[in-house]
Simulated assay, not measured.
Amino acid sequence: MFFETYKSELIISGFLIILFYLIRVIANTLIKKLGRKTGINDARIQLICRYSTVTLFLIWLLMEAFIFGTEAKDLALVFSSVFAVMGIALFAIWSILSNVTSGIIMFFSFPYKVGDKIQIHDKDFPVEAIIEDIRAFQLHLRLDNGDLVTYPNNLILQKAVTLVEKDAIDEGSDAI
Score class of each variant (00 low, 15 high):
166 K>S: 14
96 I>F: 09
120 I>M: 05
63 M>N: 03
164 V>D: 10
82 V>Y: 06
148 L>A: 12
68 F>Q: 03
60 W>A: 11
66 F>T: 08
62 L>Q: 09
69 G>N: 08
134 I>E: 03
98 S>K: 01
155 L>G: 05
100 V>H: 08
68 F>H: 03
43 A>Q: 11
128 E>Y: 06
106 M>Y: 00
68 F>L: 01
47 L>M: 15
88 I>G: 15
144 D>M: 12
50 R>W: 03
148 L>H: 09
152 P>K: 11
84 A>S: 15
68 F>K: 10
68 F>E: 04
31 I>D: 07
155 L>A: 05
156 I>E: 00
93 I>H: 11
47 L>K: 07
111 P>R: 00
160 A>I: 03
60 W>E: 09
96 I>L: 12
66 F>K: 12
58 L>I: 13
123 K>L: 11
143 L>P: 02
84 A>G: 12
103 G>N: 06
144 D>H: 13
74 D>A: 09
32 K>G: 01
55 T>N: 09
50 R>L: 10
63 M>R: 02
122 D>W: 04
166 K>H: 13
74 D>N: 10
126 P>H: 01
114 V>M: 04
126 P>L: 05
62 L>V: 14
57 F>P: 06
43 A>W: 04
53 T>G: 14
80 S>D: 09
124 D>V: 12
162 T>K: 12
151 Y>K: 06
142 R>V: 01
49 C>S: 15
142 R>S: 03
117 K>G: 10
38 T>N: 11
90 L>W: 08
126 P>A: 04
35 G>V: 03
74 D>M: 08
101 T>P: 02
32 K>R: 14
139 L>I: 07
57 F>L: 15
135 R>G: 14
27 A>G: 04
152 P>Q: 06
28 N>I: 02
50 R>P: 01
70 T>Y: 04
64 E>N: 08
29 T>F: 03
136 A>T: 12
131 I>C: 01
36 R>T: 12
94 W>M: 02
30 L>D: 10
81 S>L: 14
150 T>M: 10
118 I>S: 10
42 D>A: 13
128 E>Q: 13
56 L>N: 13
39 G>M: 00
142 R>K: 11
86 M>T: 12
80 S>G: 07
80 S>E: 11
164 V>G: 05
95 S>C: 06
124 D>A: 14
97 L>D: 10
